[in-house]
Simulated assay, not measured.
Amino acid sequence: MNTILLVDDHAVLRAGLRLLLDTQPDLHVIGEAEDTRTAIIQASTLQPNLILLDLSLMNSSGLIAIPALRSAAPQAYIVVLTMHDDEGYVRQALAAGAHGYVLKRAADAELIAAIRAVLRGELYLHPALTRQLLEDLLPHTPSVSPWEGLSDREREVLLLVARGYTGAEIATQLSLSPKTVETYRTRGMEKLGLRSRAALVQFALDHHLLTPT
């Protein structure tokens, strides 16, 4: 049987949580507290397997209480149950030593799943919050200019086209066949999404690609 200490300053919510948790065959609420001082005493005396903790307590913050609760009941897992869906709170709670973070608006089934996951030694975060954290942790790929996506030859050909050179002139200048020049021109224009020389010239001007020769 896994024992649980409820820490929340709303008596009605504690009663509802006790009713929910005690219907589970493997979970049992052994204590309640409405403030951090009582919670620390209860944790030290009862040594629960898990502490379900609100962040907004009477005259105090649950965030501040987490290290003290960890010290009072070293074997206890701590699951934050809160209305705060701010990523900053999640980071602070995890840094302080919490093992799970669940929103009060979550369904009963999610809370039970979160508690069981944490009791198995897993970290549990509300799905929406997990996505936020992952987006911040994953490296952001810098945007690549369409121009940078062209090959060197395609850039050479398009710059000459933008400067007004004919296909034959470009072929002579780059030692390529006119057909090859046309292939590079067509392929480069397609990559840039351009359909005319005028559009190419405007693109070159907008991206500061045309310099005096």
Rank of each mutant, 00 (worst) to 15 (best):
A96M: 03
K191D: 04
S151H: 09
L209M: 01
R116S: 13
E156D: 14
V79Y: 00
Y165L: 13
S44E: 06
L200E: 01
T186I: 03
R91L: 10
S196W: 02
P127M: 03
L46R: 10
Q132A: 15
I66C: 07
H140K: 13
G97L: 01
Y89T: 05
A15W: 05
R153E: 13
E182G: 10
S143R: 15
T45W: 03
S196E: 05
Y101I: 00
D108H: 13
R91S: 11
G188S: 02
Y77W: 06
A65C: 02
P142N: 07
V161K: 15
A171H: 06
A198I: 02
L17P: 02
G121L: 00
Q173C: 10
Q132S: 10
Y101H: 04
A117R: 13
D9N: 13
A171K: 04
S196I: 00
A107D: 15
I4G: 02
L6G: 06
V161M: 08
T186A: 14
K179D: 15
N2V: 06
Q92R: 12
L27Y: 01
A39K: 03
L52E: 09
L57P: 06
L129E: 02
S143K: 14
R197F: 00
E135D: 14
Q24L: 06
P139S: 05
E182D: 13
E148A: 14
Q92Y: 11
Y89V: 07
T36D: 11
N59T: 07
D86P: 00
L69P: 09
W147P: 01
